[in-house]
Simulated scan of single mutants.
Amino acid sequence: MNETDYHRYVEAFNARDYGTLETFFADDFVLENAGFAVSGKPAFRDFYRFFHEFCREEVEFREFFPGRQGFVANVVIHFTGLKELSQDELDRRGYSGMTPVPVGVTVPVEFYIHYLLNDAGLIRYIKGAVWVAEPD
């Protein structure tokens, strides 16, 4: 996957085009995020079908850093609350590392996301780190 492919990946994510998005993934890929892991395409789709009912995510591309086994992308994800979601519901579903976004509020969060690729160039592993800027 190169930077041009990644822009298509982000477009598919922002459009909620899960069918196209999944063409970038190995069948057994793992997304590790906020203290939980989603393994495989069906679990990925289930997680985002649930989460995107309550929160809109819009990925803003910043930079692409290619590597030997994958790449790192610097993005800002704008989370907008769409429907009331409680911490209890997140905890019950095993997503206790996540924080609900209040309805009507948009929270921008900067990430550095590490993507590892398999031999076919498909994403086999995703893990993000949140950038916390120094206070002014």
Rank of each mutant, 00 (worst) to 15 (best):
M1Y: 03
N2L: 05
T4V: 14
D5M: 10
D5N: 14
H7L: 15
R8T: 08
V10M: 05
V10T: 11
V10L: 12
A12C: 08
A12Q: 12
F13K: 07
F13Q: 12
N14P: 09
A15W: 08
D17Y: 11
G19I: 03
T20M: 09
L21V: 01
T23L: 06
F24A: 09
D27C: 02
D27Q: 14
D28Q: 12
L31A: 03
E32C: 02
E32S: 12
E32I: 02
N33K: 10
G35E: 09
F36P: 10
F36C: 05
V38R: 08
K41T: 08
P42W: 05
A43G: 04
F44V: 00
D46Q: 13
D46F: 00
Y48D: 07
F50I: 09
F51V: 01
H52M: 12
E53M: 06
F54R: 11
F54Q: 09
E58I: 07
E58N: 07
E60R: 15
E60N: 10
E60H: 13
E63G: 12
E63F: 03
E63I: 00
F65A: 11
F71G: 00
A73R: 04
A73L: 06
N74R: 15
V75N: 12
V76K: 06
H78S: 14
F79R: 12
F79D: 05
F79P: 00
F79G: 00
T80F: 10
L85P: 05
D88R: 15
E89M: 11
L90N: 03
D91I: 06
R92H: 13
R93T: 07
Y95Q: 03
Y95D: 05
S96W: 07
M98I: 01
P100G: 06
V103L: 03
G104I: 11
P108D: 10
E110H: 02
E110K: 10
F111L: 15
Y115V: 07
L117Y: 04
L117C: 09
L117F: 08
A120D: 14
L122F: 06
I123G: 01
I123Y: 03
I126C: 07
I126H: 02
K127V: 04
K127M: 07
G128M: 05
A129L: 13
A129D: 08
A129S: 13
W131N: 08
W131Q: 09
W131C: 04
V132M: 10
A133K: 15
A133G: 14
D136T: 09
